[in-house]
Structure formats: C-alpha cells, structure tokens
C-alpha cells in the first residue's frame, strides 16, 4: 500500500501552553491539492509551520502525530528535516520575497539552494530558473538572476520566492497565501504554474488562501478552519456547492462571485 503524502492525526498545537489548533486530522494523497480556508487567526499558518518543523521555540505540537510519506516529522532530527526541506517538502509564504538574502544575487541564492540537494551545474540552474520566471510573467529573466532583492519590486521578489520553492520540484508544497499580495493577472499565472507542477511532477500542494475562487479552481479537497478547529473537510465540489456547515456557508457567501454572462 502506498504511504499517504501527508497525514495529521489528532494534532494539537500550543503557543505558550495555550492550545491554538485542536485535534486536527487530515490525509493528503500523492499529487493531491488541498485548499485550507478560514478567517485570519484560525490557525492555518500554525498548522503549516508545524508540518515543516518551523514552529520554533514559541510553539509546540503538544499532541498527535504528523507524517510526511510515513515519516513522523515530530520524531526526526533537525538535520534530517533540513535535508527534507526543499526536495521533499517546499514552502511558499505570503512574504517569501522578504526572506531572500539581501546581499547576494537572486542567481547565487537559487544555485545555492539547489546544490545543497542535487549535483547540478550553475548553468543548468540558471536555465531552469529563467524558464520558470518567464512562465510567471517575470520577463527579462537574465537581468533578474543578476539582481539583488533590493533592485526588484515587492511583487517581483515574491515571485522569486515562489520560483525558489518550485525549482526543487518538491513532492509536497505548502503555499501560505502565496498570491494575496500579487495582482490578479499575476496571481492567475502563479496558480496555473502550480497546477503545471502537479501535472508534470506529481507535486502535492497544500494551499492556504482566502480566495475561494482559487480553491474551487485548483483544489481536490478543502479543509475549513475556524478558531483552531477543522469544521469541515471534503471534496471541493461538495464543500463549495453543498456545505454542511453554517460557518463554511457564511465564508462562501461573503465572497462576491463574478457573473460573466
């Protein structure tokens, strides 16, 4: 039997001893796209950080287990976790542009993150990066590779951060509001590129967003969070069109939908 890509069992997460996420259960299959929705403060980012082992000292998983391809990430050592980050699990977050190193060029940083995990030549990394840049509407990709982050706009750096995660073709990609700060036209390109990653390389994606449109477009399943609890979880079609929960319906009704005819 195939191991699920990600499995969370009875997960409880606390900050300063105060529970923030309660008895959380979910299972993602290989290549699955999961949408996570909920109001701000409901614990979406906390959940993703826990799976990536990035809660730091402020927070802790106090109950339950988190498995990535059968490995309990709560049990494995930091070194091994670091090796997994990148090729096995990648992450895009809302301000990933600001996480770039300010004193090295984009090209150097991309190469460095790749050679940690793969035997690969600089030219090959540049080539891959330029292809991805063009696809998400960052033309003049040669110049971008030679640029320092401060020479690019916030939206451009955000897309560099997205490429940084995508270029590794991770098996599991966490995307925490990856496009909230981008223009709608750019957002659409980024979302299509994430879909292509799944279709070509079988990347499973857990995407946190407050854009229900994005969720219905790309997600196979949806998890709805409210105050740290998973209030609804199921196939996207069922949750969006036929929700069983009042909170989910409230969330969906609050979103204006465009009428094209």
């Amino acid at each position: 039997m195939q191991q699920p890509l990600l499995e969370m069992q009875h997960v409880e997460i606390c900050y300063d001893g105060k529970p923030t996420v309660f008895d959380f259960n979910l299972k993602m299959e290989l290549g699955e796209i999961l949408g996570i929705v909920g109001e701000s403060g409901s614990g979406k980012s906390t959940l993703i950080k826990a799976a990536m082992g990035l809660l730091g000292t402020a927070g802790a998983v106090t109950r339950g287990d988190i498995y990535v391809k059968g490995k309990n990430v709560l049990d494995i050592q930091n070194d091994e976790l670091r090796q997994m980050r990148g090729p096995e699990m990648g992450m895009i977050f809302q301000n990933c542009g600001s996480a770039l190193c300010s004193i090295r060029t984009i090209g150097d940083q991309l190469y460095e993150s790749m050679e940690q995990h793969h035997a690969i030549k600089r030219a090959a990394v540049d080539q891959l990066a330029m292809q991805l840049f063009e696809k998400i509407n960052l033309p003049d990709s040669e110049r971008i590779l030679k640029s320092y982050p401060f020479e690019l706009s916030g939206g451009m750096n955000q897309r560099v951060g997205i490429v940084m995660a995508m270029i590794q073709k991770p098996e599991l990609l966490f995307a925490d509001e990856p496009t909230s700060a981008l223009d709608v036209t750019v957002q659409a390109q980024v979302i299509r590129e994430m879909m292509a990653l799944r279709n070509e390389f079988g990347t499973g994606i857990a995407i946190v967003t407050h854009n229900i449109g994005v969720v219905s477009y790309m997600a196979d399943k949806v998890a709805v969070m409210h105050k740290g609890h998973l209030v609804e979880y199921g196939k996207t079609r069922d949750v969006i069109n036929n929700s069983q929960e009042a909170y989910t319906r409230k969330l969906i009704q609050a979103v204006p939908r465009i009428r094209k005819r």
């Binding site: 709608v184 036209t185 957002q187 449109g213 009428r259 094209k260």
Partner: peptide, 21 residues
Amino acid sequence: PDEIIMNPREEYTKRLIDSVL
C-alpha cells in the same frame, strides 16, 4: 460593470477578466 465584464472591448480588460478564477 455588466457591460464591461460581459463585453470587454480592450485586450487589457479581457486579460483582467480571464484572470478571475
């Protein structure tokens, strides 16, 4: 809004509408 969204004339407007997921 209905005129623009259902019958966009400019290329740019079409792109904006197509971007709504």
